[in-house]
Every structure is written in structure tokens, then in C-alpha cells.
Amino acid sequence: MSDHDDHDEHNAPESGPALRVKALESVLVEKGIVDAAELDELIDTYEHKVGPRIGARVVARAWVDPAYKRRLIANAPAATAELGIAAGPQGENLMVIENTPRVHNMVVCTLCSCYPWPVLGLPPVWYKSAPYRSRAVSDPRGVLRDFGLEIPAEVEIRVWDSSSEMRFMVLPMRPAGTENLSEEELAALVTRDSMIGTGIVKYPAGAAAPSGE
């Protein structure tokens, strides 16, 4: 039998928001409004299972299958469902916008943090920050420079403001030299930032990508 009695790292009294959330959860569980196990599972899903690799699969499929790409742009919820991706919360009104040599798209939520969870997971810290929310609209080229992206002046930048009515995901351009890669290899190149529009997909992967994974 191991002896846990000398472990008291969990003993410190809680305060602030941690205590507040615990109290709220405790009340809701006691009332039978929230099931603690269901809550654990939901959190685990968003922490570990849902993430930008799902969106990357969608992008790779669109790159190799032009008919799929057309369906994706016409009706993203239906096209992602084809790949077995559940709409889930914040995925009901997904719209995919395509980057071209003449147009670079980037996505923001100016008022809060609307984001297409089912394909990208939860948003990164900077996406929720005041500087990004304001500057993405006032100075998109400057923001992109912060991300290490210099978009040529002749390329139009379109900024899309997510809301609960519409959540956007960018379909980045397929990099040159990838003609012989498999769909799976292509998916591995796609970064989260490239699907928000604050990055582009590079080949070989990671060539000076500032914050993609």
C-alpha cells in the first residue's frame, strides 16, 4: 500500500475564479443540471481530441479533389460531414473561404472569440486578445507582418469577422512542389495559422513558419 498522507499539494485553500467555478459546478451538479462525468468528457474532447489536424484533413482533401473543393466552398457543413466531422457547437454555420494568388483571407472575431471549433479546436490565446481583435481590421497587413507574412501589395487582403451566425475557415493555397505528395502528407503541411489566415502553407513544412505547429 502506498502512503499518500504526506502529500498535501492539493490542500491549499482555493480562491478567486477557481473557487468560484468550483462553487458554480458544485451547485449545478447537486441540482442535477450538469453531469460531472459528461463535463469531464467534453473538456477532454476539446483539450485532446478536437484540433486543427481535423481542418488540415479537410484542406488536403480539397487540394486533391476539385469536386470536393467545390462542395466545400458551396456548403462547408455538408462537405465536412462527408469526412465524418460532426458539426458540434460552433460548427453549424461554417463557411470556407479560398485563398488565391490575388486574394488572401484572414479571420477574426472582433467582439469575442467565435471560431470554428469542430475543424480547428479552440482558438489560440492571441486570437482572443484585444490587439488581434482590433488590429486585424484596422491594420491587417501590419498584423500579418507580426506573424512573419509579407503579403505583396497587389494581393488583396480580405478580413472576415466571425459571429455566431457565420464561422470562417480559410482554405490556404497549396504550395508549389507538392504535386507528388499523398493526401496524408499534404495534411501534415497544413498549419492552424494557415486556416485562420495568419499563416500560409509552406513546403518543405515549417520553412520559417512563425507559429504554426
Binding site: P17, E25, E38, L39, L42, L122
Partner: peptide
């Protein structure tokens, strides 16, 4: 961790 609980509570509700 409390952020995850707060997130989960809102989504669950």
C-alpha cells in the same frame, strides 16, 4: 484547470 471547467460548463449548459 478552472478555465477548462468554466468552458465546459457553458458548452454543456
Amino acid at each position: 484547470p478552472w478555465e477548462a471547467r468554466a468552458f465546459g460548463l457553458a458548452v454543456t449548459l
